[in-house]
Design a protein around this nucleic acid. Structure first.
Lengths: 205, 205
DNA sequence: GTCTATAATCAGATAGAC
DNA sequence: GTCTATCTGATTATAGAC
């Protein structure tokens, strides 16, 4: 029994997590597409292909549903940060993060953050997994920001917190979707354009 | 009669427009605070101090209500552009526009634009006054952008449309409210910080 | 045009059978 | 856990008196 029980448990758990993974993926996409308020639980259920009541067996509320998606993205970010080459310069790390964030948004996998007053905002503030992830990511980025400023590659006159927020803002930059709608540039070209405006600014050098 | 009728008309019209102005001001504020989806018509009515049914006598739907607020802001922008000193350099004009946009947002008077798929978005696309205003503003800014690039003050490698969108994006930049929430900087300091990141970029010079 | 009262609809959440 | 059917409340919009 000690040899079979773990297998049974694992299988059940796998099925459960696969289902929840599919749910989170749908929520992620819809959240990126329409935002929290405009997304309806009915849509999510239809997109996943299960009944609405079944959704509520997995997640007790719409806020928890969205929070789970946000936590999922936060974990992806943490994974991405850990996978970065350790020998790269702090500035290259920051640039890589900005690129990654924007490609996620262009791919429609970046849920739009509730910068405005929102029910989701309070839910996220109370979500330990999300806040812990946010803290770890901020710490990591903060260290790179200070290191890059010490090296003189990043403008030392900018407060690190302003740089951090500027990088976070790439996750909800409307310029990306505006340029995408124009259909004049490929996704990678759009990213390079916005990378330029972000790091080099609009002014000539 | 030819001397009194205009006065009577004008008075009536003034009262009507004053009332509608108050409505639009409330909508503007609530739209900036919570966004279109989260704002309810009941809130607007309560904020203005009139009955909800009266609102619907002025504006036939929630979309029209919000569109009127957007048109109002667009007119303010047009007025601001026209009031700019004609002898200033194109680059100074663009910088002045960015500053104005951000101060409006910090003052809570910039309704959050529906960059995402939204009912409001389609309503605005179908709104002639809004689209006309948007076109005129874009033309004016576009001319300055090209002139500044010709002078070499604005990076000539950036497509003008990317610069235009980057300036528009200052109207919904979450960095402003993030920094404001931190309460470490005054509004004018926040604006200068974001002006720096926008025009000079994050890199050192 | 403004009001009170109400209609009509939609969306978040739940009951209860299987 | 999943389903169908339903409840409940919130929200957009309107009727009709004044």
């Amino acid at each position: 029994m000690a040899s079979t029980a773990p297998t049974k448990m694992s299988f059940k758990t796998q099925m459960l997590e696969a289902r929840e993974g599919a749910i989170i993926q749908s929520v992620n996409r819809l959240l990126a597409e329409k935002g929290f308020e405009a997304m309806t639980v009915d849509e999510v259920a239809a997109d996943v292909g299960i009944a609405k009541a079944s959704l509520y067996k997995h997640f007790p509320s719409k806020e928890d549903l969205a929070a789970a998606a946000m936590v999922s993205v936060m974990r992806r970010a943490q994974g991405f940060l850990k996978g970065l080459p350790v020998n790269a310069s702090p500035m290259d790390q920051l640039r890589a993060v900005a690129r990654w964030t924007m490609s996620l948004k262009l791919a429609g996998e970046m849920p739009s953050l509730p910068s405005q007053n929102s029910r989701l905002r309070s839910a996220l503030m109370a979500n330990k997994a999300y806040m812990d992830g946010l803290m770890e990511v901020s710490d990591r980025l903060g260290a790179w920001i200070e290191a890059a400023q010490a090296q003189g590659t990043l403008n030392p006159k900018l407060p690190p917190i302003a740089v951090l927020y500027t990088l976070y803002a790439r996750a909800c930059d409307p310029v990306l979707e505006f340029l995408k709608m124009g259909a004049l540039y490929r996704d990678d070209e759009i990213i390079e354009l916005v990378m330029d405006t972000c790091f080099q600014g609009l002014n000539s050098r």
